[in-house]
Design a protein around this nucleic acid. Structure first.
Lengths: 149, 149
DNA sequence: CAAAATCCTACCACTTGGGTAGGATTAAGT
DNA sequence: ACTTAATCCTACCCAAGTGGTAGGATTTTG
């Protein structure tokens, strides 16, 4: 599995915030209730998003979180990368471009590198706005019969 | 991580067999030595490939394994799918098309479904032969500066 | 000053990953 | 027939990661 619940719930939180933004701060308990997820677990996840600069937060009563930018200015890759640490499909693709010592002669490395690029390319191209507007043509490109491809 | 060592080593074994095929059977100890991998571990992996019909095997002295088909007739998706069980990037994409109970209203599902298709599409398009011939243009499509894209 | 919210540090059960160990069985060559 | 070399099979095991829970400290508003 490449994306764990951590990344998936992080995206769910971001989408929830995008859908329910009215300028004010949204409390985590509201989000947890709407999405039917454990608030305690979400706490640890939203903390990553917050520290990573994805959100603005306000402590105290009537506090909560809101998006730091507009939905169209978040791409999915950065959200998942922040929470998952890496999205590499295999261990031999390092996050910082470091390669294993057999890289020069490894005949399968180009495959993994290509796969990594394909994944990153797909996720980087989709924004939070695409998700909340349900841009199925973009997300299911080439695979959705009911969309005009 | 989507592809563990199990799937990676399985592919390594298949590539090794494809490179070293001369009609005869190749012993696992030869493969393990060439690839510098634990023979005991490879044993459990090659067993999956064998039972899945990817290989032909011969027991006893001078026995070993060889490819059941030609390298061009294996795609990478089927090799990894067999050994990994699933290549789905998230748990909410089930292997047999079964969906989670929130699927109808889930706004992130199209993203995951699209990602799954992109991965499957990439891996299904590449064959064992592409790997042994080093078809970088196909594997690194659009991302390789030294290839003419 | 009470209520409601974020923040912070532990802890923990369960599953998966990445193997190892040991032996049973089978086939070839002498 | 017997040795050797190979596949086959079952069981075990440790470390790391996943998916949380618990409890409290701190901050802000009304």
């Amino acid at each position: 599995m490449m994306v764990s619940t951590k990344g998936r719930y992080a995206l769910t939180v971001m989408v929830d915030l995008a859908k329910n933004e009215d300028g004010g701060y949204v409390s985590l308990s509201d989000i947890a209730e709407r999405e039917n997820l454990s608030m305690k677990y979400l706490e640890s996840i939203i903390s990553i998003l917050n520290k990573g600069g994805m959100l603005l937060s306000l402590r105290g009563k009537n506090g909560g979180y809101k998006l730091a930018r507009e939905p169209k200015d978040y791409n999915i890759n950065e959200i998942l990368l922040l929470t998952e640490g890496t999205l590499a499909p295999v261990n031999c693709i390092m996050q910082d471009g470091v390669q294993c010592d057999k890289a020069a002669t490894c005949s399968t490395l180009p495959l993994w590198a290509g796969l990594d690029k394909v994944i990153e390319g797909y996720l980087s191209d989709i924004t939070l706005e695409d998700i909340i507007t349900g841009n199925r043509r973009k997300m299911l490109k080439g695979y959705c019969e009911s969309c005009d491809n």
